[in-house]
Write a protein that binds this DNA or RNA. Structure first.
Lengths: 154, 154
DNA sequence: TGGTTATTGGTAATCATTATCAATTAGACT
DNA sequence: AGTCTAATTGATAATGATTACCAATAACCA
């Protein structure tokens, strides 16, 4: 089932702005913000409105065609709808996809030891990526990165 | 080392608003937003400014006296600075603390299989809490909860 | 106690997101 | 291909959370 069919089957339309917005998010692995998507979409559709980008990102996420996740500096969007985890480099701020580890064991353990029924869970890793390790980057965390990472380690 | 000493040793002052803000966050386990902290602080200090609450939450988090975490509806603050994970109930929206599972194994595994150096990681669980399971609540997810949880399951 | 200066309250500014609405256009049906 | 209808758009205003600014205040130290 193609994206167009998914939309049409729910009474939604595949307009030019919508198609381009979906393409942009799907063709990147950088987990862009709405503003970043807007900038890229404008390269193909200069008259597009920022509101249209917001509206569509929201709608496409609701339809399950992309994933919306909250990060420290606002919402970010992910065209990869498969199960995977994320690694955030606190030196350069980039967010990398990492393969998910098996989920069933964690779910079972949670279910047996608490009153919680776990539908799903997320893992977010924080550290330094290969490039930054080689570069020995030791720049102080930005406010954004501090927020993402929670607090500065002593 | 008390909070007052921590602050003073860094040239910061323990003012009345600051002390009350820290008390409020430390004496709750509901991971309040800035607005919620503001409401509670005003009960003890009616003339406090919302800006003061924001400023202090930020400052106290930078000093490591509390933890700032980004959630779907904005920043939330946690007086529990120890290592622990979170469970979000998608029915009622409450965020519960859950004990952390051992970290070292995950870190080692990540280090050996990728170029990433992992300083820390977070787990966020999503599901239904005991109260909501008993209540058989089956309310549709709010926009906020949808965002938190990522996307609606089919 | 006095002096320095971090901090406050009040308010304006900023930033991301959402709401509103007349004009447009995708998609279904002739 | 043309028509109709409602989803969608672009433009812009409104909202909500957070931050910046600044004169007045109050912690802390000598």
């Amino acid at each position: 089932m193609t994206a167009a069919d998914t939309l049409r089957s729910r009474g939604l339309r595949l307009t030019r702005p919508r198609r381009i917005i979906l393409d942009v998010v799907r063709s990147t692995d950088t987990h862009p913000t709405a503003a970043s998507v807007y900038r890229r979409v404008r390269r193909k559709l200069p008259r597009v409105s920022l509101a249209t980008v917001h509206r569509n990102l929201r709608q496409l996420a609701t339809q399950g065609l992309l994933v919306e996740r909250s990060a420290a500096d606002g919402m970010r969007f992910d065209g990869n709808t498969g199960v995977h985890d994320h690694f955030t480099c606190v030196a350069c701020g980039r967010i990398y996809d990492v393969p998910a580890r098996p989920r069933s064991a964690v779910r079972r353990r949670m279910a047996s030891s608490t009153a919680f029924e776990v539908f799903d869970y997320r893992m977010e890793f924080y550290g330094r990526c290969g490039a930054c390790r080689r570069r020995r980057t030791r720049s102080p965390l930005t406010r954004h990165q501090r927020r993402t990472y929670g607090r500065q380690e002593p």
